[in-house]
Structures are given as structure tokens and as C-alpha cells.
Design a protein around this nucleic acid. Structure first.
Lengths: 116, 116
DNA sequence: TGCATATTCAACCATTCGGTTGACGATCCT
DNA sequence: AGGATCGTCAACCGAATGGTTGAATATGCA
């Protein structure tokens, strides 16, 4: 699980997986709860979680019959450092990030609702 | 060419493409010269350059019969900001980045040379 | 004009990816 | 014990990915 750049970047390349990571930013979550907002099968989400785990971006811990997913932001460090080598990107503007995040989440919701 | 997170992250997910970006960090390059270190056809490299262009990570300018590739690091900004929202990754350690880069380039060379 | 160089296009191929469904193993609850 | 819930496994499917080769286009040069 050294999480190389290949696996991290390709894990991040999928909007569903990025949405999951954003959700986990708030709190740890059970697999079923992670899946709830998405318009796709539990199996599909389970696969996404597998890919995120493989990339080291989350860990999963079984307690009882529930598996808890925990964000592991450290796995992004090498990728982040790599990118920053290409330019000094302005010191984290958290407001901008919030807006960005909401935008991505909103897109996700919209996508989910077109099917209902 | 708004270069969304999907296209940027998936462009960065391929080691050949990351190596190309690293090369362009030094200077603009012609397509043929970009292709030279790699053990694959010019067509393959041309496709990779197309993907990088699509992601906004490079631009191509034709001068005479030669097409010059130019790095556009700004295309990484939104992706970088997104990742930084998951944690304050230490202020760019350029030395670490240099080492990292050399490592990646070395891997690329090794790969190329195993075939020669 | 005619040849060499630079790059892309078109068609093809094997593999991976993101999704589905149906069956299964674990765990909790009564 | 028996039923409901949580999550994964296995098999399948269509589309996308990363590569190939051979032909085509455009430019530079003698």
C-alpha cells in the first residue's frame, strides 16, 4: 500500500470516488451510508471503495457487521507535492475550496436526481 | 478547454504522460523530441500529447512542419487546490520534488533501456 | 519537381473500467 | 433457529484505454 502516483491519480480521476472522499471529509461512514446518495448499486460503490483503499486514500475497518470507511488524506501527499513542483499554487484558499466542493457535490446530486 | 478534474486527474494517471510533463518543465519540445526517450511509437506519443492537450496541461503550436509542445502548469491549479482541501501538505519542498522527479525519469529511462 | 522529415489519421487489437445482477457469508435481533 | 441487514464475490457486458501498423497530409530542401 505505498500508493504510487498511478493508483492515486487514477483513483482521483473518477467523480464518484472524489465525491466519496468529500463525504468522508466530514466523518467516517459505513459502506451502506456512503452508497445512499448515489444512483448506483451497492456493489458498484463497494468496488469504488476497493479502488480508494488500494490507492491508500481510505481504510476500512469492520466493527460488527458494519464496515467503517475512514479518509486517509496522507495518501494524497506525494501526488500533491508532485503537482506543486509544476508551479506554486496559491496557499490554500479554503473559501475557494468550499465553493469548489459544493459545486462538485451539487453536480453529483443533480446527476442522481435526473434518474428519479 | 476548461479542463475539469476528471480530465486532469486521468491525464496525470499515466506515467508516460507524467514523464512528458516533467520533460516539458525544462523547455518546450517538438513532438519527435518528446517521443525520442520512449520505447513506443510516435503515434502513441502523439495520442498522449492529445490527451494532455485536452486536459489543458500543454498547448501545441505549429511552426513550420514542427509542432512545439509547451507546458501549461496552470491547468493543474484546480486539481491541486482540490487535493489541498484534504490536508495542508507541507509548503513545497523543492528538493524533495527534484529527487522525486529524477526518480520518475530514471524509471522511465530504465524501462526504455530494458528493450534495447 | 521530387524526396525526406514531421505529424496525424484510420483501423484494429487486447486489456481495463465502470456498471449490472444474483448468489453467498457474516452478523445482529427476536 | 430463523429472518433481516451488511457487504463482497463471481460472472457478465459495453465502452474506454493504451498500444500497434500502414496510409495520408504538410512542410522543408535540393
Amino acid at each position: 500500500m505505498p500508493a504510487n502516483l498511478d493508483t492515486v491519480f487514477s483513483a482521483l480521476a473518477d467523480p464518484t470516488r472524489r465525491a466519496i472522499l468529500s463525504m468522508l471529509l466530514e466523518d467516517d461512514m459505513a459502506v451502506t451510508d456512503v452508497a445512499e446518495p448515489f444512483q448506483m448499486s451497492l456493489t458498484a460503490i463497494s468496488k469504488h471503495l476497493g479502488i480508494l483503499t488500494e490507492a491508500g486514500l481510505i481504510t476500512r475497518e469492520k466493527r460488527g457487521r458494519v464496515i467503517w470507511c475512514k479518509l486517509e488524506p496522507d495518501a494524497m501527499r506525494s501526488a500533491s507535492v508532485w503537482m506543486q513542483g509544476f508551479g506554486q499554487f496559491e496557499p490554500v484558499d479554503l473559501d475557494a475550496f468550499e465553493r469548489f466542493l459544493e459545486c462538485e457535490l451539487a453536480e453529483g446530486d443533480a446527476e442522481a436526481e435526473t434518474q428519479e
